[in-house]
Design a binder for these strands. Sequence first.
DNA 1: CGGTCACTTGATCGTCTTCAATACCAGTGG
DNA 2: CCACTGGTATTGAAGACGATCAAGTGACCG
Lengths: 231, 231
Amino acid sequence: MCGVRRASICDAVPEADVARLATAAMDGVAKPNETIIEEAGPATAFFNVTSGTVRLYKLLPDGRRQITGFATMGDFLGLAASGNYAVTAQAIDTVRYCRFSHARLRTLIHDIPLMERQLLSFATAELATAHEQMLLLGRKSARERVASFLMTRSRLSCAHRQSATHFILPMARGDIADYLGMTIETVVRTLKKLRDEGMIEVANTRDVIIIDSISLRRLADCQAGFEPGRG
Amino acid sequence: MCGVRRASICDAVPEADVARLATAAMDGVAKPNETIIEEAGPATAFFNVTSGTVRLYKLLPDGRRQITGFATMGDFLGLAASGNYAVTAQAIDTVRYCRFSHARLRTLIHDIPLMERQLLSFATAELATAHEQMLLLGRKSARERVASFLMTRSRLSCAHRQSATHFILPMARGDIADYLGMTIETVVRTLKKLRDEGMIEVANTRDVIIIDSISLRRLADCQAGFEPGRG
DNA sequence: CGGTCACTTGATCGTCTTCAATACCAGTGG
DNA sequence: CCACTGGTATTGAAGACGATCAAGTGACCG
């Protein structure tokens, strides 16, 4: 019995089918920095995160890393086009999840056709997020990237019924850097600058308070003129 | 009656259902630079490209553009998570397509459940491509980006039953730049350098011949040591 | 305490952008 | 036929943004 009922994939599943879902799922826990799925590894299961935060990333042979996203409660891991996973998924903190083997999921999808629609809907939403991130990586400045990141975290906090102006970052500077396509140093300097300019407050390196959300949003959305003379 | 039979989405549709598909589809043509779907516009239809090349992009308020991908024969446009399109789709050259209204597609999916699986499969493949592009945009150098782009075009040419070493780029330098997250000038200079180094040949700005595919691939995959002293 | 690890800060460097000029090519009309 | 035009491509010079390199700080832990 796992937290599957509260998770996004299963929200649309009729109450009557939840029991059947539960029999197909298996609980699991991953410790910090434990790898849950590995890029290019054979795709044998789907995962549904029930708590904690996961980093999804791809590596280059020389070690350069691009984090393609973070997964939290309700998110879905393991969609694979070919028979192999496209990205590595690694626990940032302690992560709890439900695991569905492909074989079981197949029969499940057969029994609950709505499930497939749910998966398509999830994949499509992910695709839109990926496109947004491509815009960030290809065309935004360091300032704009960090501002966008903070606004996204703020929205996420809000969606989890928590404060939009005060939230805690589960990931370290290095994760943020590899997510935004920059270096740790530039992330630190940019955060410091936003702090000095009075847009945000940062405590204990993980604790963020958004002071001037108007300016921050304008910066994240790349609307000019948030502060004349400092382009 | 459109080229729908040859297109990827419908490949898996039983021959018997093709007729039903055809009744739901409507032919269309887009002239160069004509917009087919618009970012944030209400999503009312799906499109299946049958010939030509489409650029998919997002814009920033100040005009910066990120091309998220190119669509060609067999590709699918218009997957939308919310009720609105995520990216703009614009014809590069003359584009022919099939159009399915959402309403009709819905009944179609009801009739042909396999269709939904096909859509999910397409979306998942797109997602993997997007992740690959995020790695490129966030972590690769200009040289590596251009090499990756050329290798991708080579693979595409190959998949279309044409030469892997000689192909024609349907898009202009500006499109390549906005796809790779760089400027036109840097694209030009990088291509020139690869030409000077004997990896490729370029004629008429659109005609590419890959001379040294080993080195080019090594560069694209970011494996060091392709040419000592010129890192 | 001495160790490690993450974060922060400073100085320097290089890649890519920006700005500007020029070349090129197709189409148009004198 | 040839100037003229508009768009795309190319090349050069200068500058900026962010990366790299290096040092220092602080927290946590054995």
